[in-house]
Every structure is written in C-alpha cells, then in structure tokens.
C-alpha cells in the first residue's frame, strides 16, 4: 500500500532500482543488502524513535526489522512491496516492545529525557504518551507524527479502518485531557 502512490520521475527510477536490489538480495548479494539498508534505515529509525521515544532502542528495533525482512524476503510475492513490508515489521516490533514496556512503566514509572531541540516538550509528550494504552499510543503516533493515512495505519496495525477511527478518537480525547492536566490549561 505504501508504494502504490503515483510515482513520478526520480521516484519511478527509485522503485525500479529497489526491485532490482530486492531481486539481487534473494540471490545473496551483499551490496544490494547494503543499498536497501541505506535507503530505508532513516525512515525505520525515525518511526521507531517516535513510537518508542528511545533512540537506542529504536536502532535495535530497526536492525531487528531488517534482519527479519531479509530473512523472509523469499516470501515476498512482489519486489516493489518490500519497503511497506519492512515498515510493517518495524511498527509491529515497536508495538511488541510497547506492550512489554507498559508493564515496566507501572513498576518504575521513570522517563529519561532525550537530546534535541525542544527537550522539555519532548519529555512532557513522552510522559503523556506513556500513560496511553499501547494501541492508542501507536495509532496516535502513526497518524499525527508519522502522518500516515487511515488506510495505512489500518494496514500497518492489521486492524479494520473503523477500529483506527475509533482508536484515534479515543486517543485524541485522552491525550487532550492528559495534556490539560500536565500544563494546567
């Protein structure tokens, strides 16, 4: 689904190139593997960082997603579907970690600040997101931070689009309430 958008010019070349890389990967070509990693790692690490709010954990998840993607590359029916497939693996791995993290947070309830421009804002957002159930959190992040469409969120999370709508509605409302409590608006 992620690659079915209308491509033009350079994007078409990129798609064709990616198909070649995937085909070469199937034959065990390491140069093609490196090229695919270089192309997709930024997006995967960024998404994982947004979902997990931890840079190092995000890199681990991205690596795990690449390993799983390459291991199962033979199962792909369409070479052009690789990027979406990889993205789905990454999001699902993040959700698995969030599910485990939720239990940890109830015990320790600690949030580490990150480096970056708007540190205070990020720390507050991180604390607020940590209070949401992982399905709501992932849905909200994928829609608002990753700017995915409803269809894309539904596909990545493997749920019907109606569920995405209702989760987003609940997530926005709960996030608003948490935000008001935090900032005292």
């Amino acid at each position: 689904m992620f690659d079915t958008r209308v491509f033009s010019g350079a994007a078409v070349d990129q798609a064709a190139q990616e198909r070649q890389w995937v085909a070469r990967c199937r034959e065990g070509d390491e140069t093609a593997l490196s090229s695919l990693i270089a192309r997709h790692r930024n997006r995967l690490v960024r998404t994982a960082t947004n979902l997990l709010r931890d840079r190092h954990e995000a890199e681990d998840v991205a690596q795990e997603a690449f390993l799983k993607g390459f291991r199962e590359i033979h199962k792909l029916r369409e070479d052009r579907a690789f990027s979406g497939y990889l993205y789905k693996i990454c999001v699902r791995l993040c959700m698995d970690r969030l599910r485990l993290k939720r239990a940890e947070l109830t015990e320790f309830d600690s949030v580490q600040p990150h480096e970056g421009g708007t540190v205070e804002n990020r720390v507050v957002i991180e604390k607020l997101l940590a209070q949401l159930p992982y399905e709501l959190r992932a849905t909200l992040v994928l829609r608002e931070m990753e700017q995915l469409s409803y269809d894309e969120v539904a596909e990545v999370m493997h749920v019907p689009i109606g569920t995405v709508r209702s989760r987003l509605h609940t997530a926005r409302e709960r996030f608003r309430k948490l935000w008001i409590e935090a900032v005292g608006e």
């Binding site: 947004n50 840079r55 804002n121 957002i125 909200l140 931070m145 926005r172 996030f175 608003r176 935000w179």
Partner: peptide, 13 residues
C-alpha cells in the same frame, strides 16, 4: 485539542 496535537507533532523526531 488543537494545542495538544500541535505539541505532539512538534515533538516528532
């Protein structure tokens, strides 16, 4: 709601 979501978007990496 708008403020909260804007802050959320701004906190994106």
């Amino acid at each position: 709601s708008s403020n909260a979501l804007n802050m959320l978007r701004m906190a994106a990496f």
